[in-house]
Design a protein around this nucleic acid. Structure first.
Lengths: 116, 116
DNA sequence: TCACAATGATACGGAGCCGAAACGTTCACG
DNA sequence: CGTGAACGTTTCGGCTCCGTATCATTGTGA
C-alpha cells in the first residue's frame, strides 16, 4: 500500500513542516545533517563514516563534522570498533530517538491539517 | 479529506526526500530559504520583506539576504511597489515555479515508493 | 512644512560549513 | 617484520549565513 500524493499535497506538506521547523527556533539541522541522522535511525546498523559518506555521496570530512555537531547535541554517539580499530561505529542515543519522534509528530500533524 | 501518515511513513518520507536532495544538487537551499520560497509560491501575493519576516518569525535581514541568494539563482524577483515606494514586492519567476515543481515530483515519487 | 514612523538594505564581527589535502592510527599481507 | 592500504580526523583558506545596529529612502500626520 503506497502513498499517493497530489502536487498540492506534496508541496503543501513541505511548506507547513518547513515553516514549523523555522519558527520553532530550535537548533535547526542542515539538510545534510538531517539526512545523516535519519539514515542512522531508519537503516539497520552498523553505520560507519565511510559508509555514510558513500550513501550520501559526500566526502568523509562532511560526515565527521556533522557527527561532531550532532554529537555535541547528544543526537548521536561514536564508538571505536574493537574488531577493527580503524572503524568508528555510530550509535543511536535516546535524545536522538526523541528528536526524530518529535519531528515525525510534526509531519503527521501537518499532514492531517492539509486541506486535500 | 485529510492525509493520515504513520510515524514510519512520515520519517521514511523525510528520509528519502532529504537523501535525494543531498545526493542530487549542489543547489542546497537552507531550510529558511526553502520556507521562504514555498511561502512565496503557495500563499497568495503580495509578499513583502516585512510580511515574510513576521510569518517566519525571523529578522528582516534574514529575508533580504535570502532574497539576494535566491534572486541570484533566478528563483524569485524583487519589484518596488509604486503605490508605496518603501515596499518591495516579491515576485515569482518561471525558474522558481519549475524548481518547486521538480521538488514536488521528487516528494511524490518518494512517497509512492514507501514500503507501507 | 517638518519631525517622526516605516520599510528595506547595508556594515560589522562572529560562527558554521565547505572541499582539498595532509595526517596519525590500524590492519593486511608478502 | 615492513610496506602499503584503509579509516577517520584535522588543517587550511574560503564562502555563506547569522544577529545587532545603523543607514537611506519614503510616507504620514500634526
Amino acid at each position: 500500500m503506497s502513498l499517493e500524493l497530489t502536487p498540492s499535497q506534496a508541496l503543501g506538506l513541505w511548506h507547513t513542516v518547513a515553516l514549523s521547523q523555522v519558527r520553532s527556533e530550535a537548533h535547526d539541522l542542515t539538510l545534510r545533517q538531517m539526512a545523516i541522522l535519519l539514515q542512522i535511525y531508519l537503516v539497520p546498523p552498523p553505520h560507519t563514516v565511510r559508509g555514510l559518506a558513500a550513501t550520501l555521496h559526500v566526502t568523509k570530512p562532511v560526515i565527521t563534522r556533522a557527527l561532531d555537531t550532532m554529537g555535541a547535541l547528544g543526537l548521536v554517539d561514536r564508538v571505536r570498533d574493537d574488531k577493527d580499530r580503524r572503524n568508528v561505529i555510530i550509535k543511536r542515543t535516546v535524545a536522538g530517538a526523541l528528536y526524530l519522534e518529535k519531528l515525525g509528530d510534526v509531519i503527521i500533524a501537518e499532514a492531517r491539517q492539509l486541506p486535500y
